[in-house]
């Protein structure tokens, strides 16, 4: 959670600096592009560093794939429901935008920056808040979530964050076995985030 709060602080500091006009906006936009590509390459390297995935599938079998699939299916269902409800709150959004934000699966850094990089800073900010709330919900409510829906509950709400920032609470309130499956689920979702976001905005 420390990480998430630090990110929010950076974002808030940026808003302040932008409002005060200390940095010309064009400079920010140019730097955004190049560093996004570097970030994506380094994110790929992070996936290559980690070979735990292969071992987990070998040890637990194909059924473990149901875990990331639950998050994908659940996020799609949640998106449809909230897409239907938002107009009643006076905040109608196109379904594509809701699905694109949801496809961050809690990977707030990459999803927000990718969407902002597509020329949609407003939607990128929505993605940042939406995906950071996965982490906050998981960290603050883990014991309650486990009681409600079992040890897989925090793995599901954490989404991609199950492999790193949320891993300690998953292990603490669920147990070692849930943590191992959480690593797998988080890694699969992490890899899917850029693919799904690109796909949703390019072809939807």
């Amino acid at each position: 959670m420390k990480n998430g709060l630090l990110i929010l602080a950076c974002f808030a500091a940026g808003i302040l600096v932008g409002k005060l006009g200390w940095i010309p906006r064009a400079l920010g936009d140019g730097a955004l592009d190049l560093s996004l590509y570097i970030l994506l390459f380094v994110a790929g390297m992070g996936m290559g560093f980690d070979t735990r995935n292969f071992r987990i599938v070998r040890d637990l079998g194909w059924r473990v794939a149901l875990l990331p699939m639950s998050v994908i299916l659940g996020s799609a269902l949640g998106s449809l429901v909230i897409w239907g409800l938002l107009p009643f709150l006076g905040h109608a959004m196109p379904l594509r935008d809701v699905l694109g934000v949801a496809a961050g699966f809690g990977y707030y850094s990459l999803s927000s920056v990718m969407i902002a990089g597509m020329g949609q800073p407003a939607l990128g900010s929505v993605a940042l808040i939406a995906n950071i709330s996965h982490e906050l919900i998981t960290m603050l409510l883990a014991p309650l979530l486990v009681r409600l829906a079992g040890g897989f509950a925090p793995v599901a709400t954490a989404g991609a964050a199950a492999m790193d920032t949320c891993l300690p609470v998953i292990a603490l309130y669920g147990g070692e076995r849930y943590a191992i499956m959480g690593v797998f689920s988080g890694m699969v979702l992490t890899m899917l985030v850029p693919v799904l976001i690109t796909g949703i905005f390019a072809w939807f």
């Binding site: 875990l67 639950s70 998050v71 299916l73 659940g74 996020s75 799609a76 269902l77 949640g78 998106s79 429901v81 909230i82 409800l85 938002l86 709150l89 905040h91 959004m93 809701v98 934000v101 949801a102 699966f105 900010s125 929505v126 993605a127 940042l128 808040i129 939406a130 995906n131 950071i132 709330s133 996965h134 919900i137 998981t138 979530l145 409600l148 829906a149 079992g150 897989f152 509950a153 793995v155 599901a156 709400t157 989404g159």
Partner: peptide, 19 residues
């Protein structure tokens, strides 16, 4: 508000399906 709503909806949906 939009961000928080989408975040909660997706977390809740994932919770239901994983259950």
């Amino acid at each position: 508000l939009r961000g928080i709503s989408i975040g909660i909806a997706c977390a809740a949906g994932s919770l239901v399906v994983v259950r």
